[in-house]
């Protein structure tokens, strides 16, 4: 996907909590190991993180609780000052930006959704959603009109006058989403937005989120501790462990080729056929092309029923009608057999 440029680049970012963290890092030439940090009584919440988020993609950061996801995402928006490293937002070095410039960037170009919603208890839904605009000094009728639009978008029309504690968890998070979208951010952070919700609601909210994104086409950094959620939503996934990013890749890359045992542990129970797409297992076209065709973006699970008694090969054709290759039954079976 190198065709779209990077919106946000994070180079060798460290966040170490504890006294004398910066000094410790410098003296270890930026190579402090987990054990060395623990020994010094420090917490290496984020260690040497490298990644880039491309325009228009959903970039998911996945890791167990305590692996440093929240810290990393807060470094990206500079809510937490990284101990070392570089963060480039549209080419601008965020760590060199003045306080005033940061306020400017956050007001107009970033939005964030929080795990526990972070709604202001004294404001009703309308005013909560309008709050970011209010802070900017947008005129009252303009900001309230915009807020109503956003409330409509997330399906809460009619609840404008309700206070946060009168809403269910799912509704509260819809308010949080509406609020974060009110300023039309270019970069949208979501820190475990659905983790505090019941499983059924969570599923519903994930679908809702996909719907929103298909309309909005934002650049998104999405945090979760749920591998299934990551697989379902991500264009690309970064997997974190103990503050380190252990693997970055498309869901199918991670499922097909986990970089470490740790990652493999997550992928074990994932039905590969539902993640792996045709383009990843197709072969270059040789010999006679089969008659029946399949999209390169279809999952193996989608493609499998197309192999009927006589059909053993499928032609892979993209939207514009180009023939990209061939999908063999044996490869499909192979993926299905792997679970």
């Amino acid at each position: 996907m190198s065709e779209s440029e990077a919106k946000l680049v994070c180079r060798d970012v460290w966040k170490v909590f504890g006294d004398g963290a910066a000094q410790f890092l410098r003296s270890h030439a930026g190579k402090a190991t987990h054990d060395a940090l623990v020994e010094a009584g420090l917490v290496g919440a984020v260690r040497a993180a490298n990644m880039e988020v491309r325009t228009g993609e959903i970039f998911v950061i996945m890791g167990l609780s305590g692996s440093g996801k929240s810290t990393l995402v807060r470094c990206l928006s500079r809510l937490i000052e990284p101990t070392a490293g570089e963060i480039l937002f549209k080419g601008e070095n965020l760590l060199a930006a003045s306080d005033k410039r940061m306020i400017e960037i956050r007001r107009h170009q970033m939005g964030m959704v929080f795990q526990h919603f972070a709604l202001l208890p004294h404001l009703d839904v309308l005013h909560n959603v309008a709050f970011p605009l209010d802070v900017q000094g947008v005129a009252r009728d303009k900001r309230e009109a915009r807020a109503r639009q956003m409330i409509e978008l997330v399906g809460l029309a009619g609840k404008e006058g309700f206070f946060p504690r009168e809403l269910s968890g799912g509704q509260q998070q819809r308010v949080g989403i509406a609020r974060s979208l009110a300023v039309e951010p270019e970069l949208w952070f979501l820190d475990e937005p659905f983790s505090a919700l019941d499983p059924l609601i969570r599923r519903e909210m994930q679908d809702e989120f996909s719907r929103l994104q298909s309309v909005l086409k934002k650049t998104i950094v999405f945090i979760t501790h749920d591998f299934d959620e990551a697989i379902r939503l991500a264009d690309r996934i970064a997997i974190m462990k103990d503050g380190e990013i252990v693997q970055v890749g498309k869901p199918e890359e991670i499922v097909l080729a986990p970089a470490t045992d740790y990652v493999a542990e997550f992928t074990r129970n994932v039905p590969k056929a539902k993640v792996v797409r045709v383009r990843s297992v197709m072969k270059p076209a040789t010999g006679r092309m089969p008659r029946d065709s399949v999209s390169p973006l279809a999952t193996i699970a989608d493609a499998a029923p197309l192999f009927t008694g006589r059909v053993t090969r499928l032609k892979v054709v993209d939207d514009s009608g180009r023939e990209l290759g061939v999908l063999e039954r044996a490869d499909v079976v192979d993926v299905m057999m792997r679970g």
Partner: peptide
């Protein structure tokens, strides 16, 4: 005050 609420304040660019 929950730290997330403080984060929110910073995220929306509060002075």
């Amino acid at each position: 005050v929950p730290s997330e609420v403080i984060d929110l304040g910073n995220m929306v660019g509060c002075t």
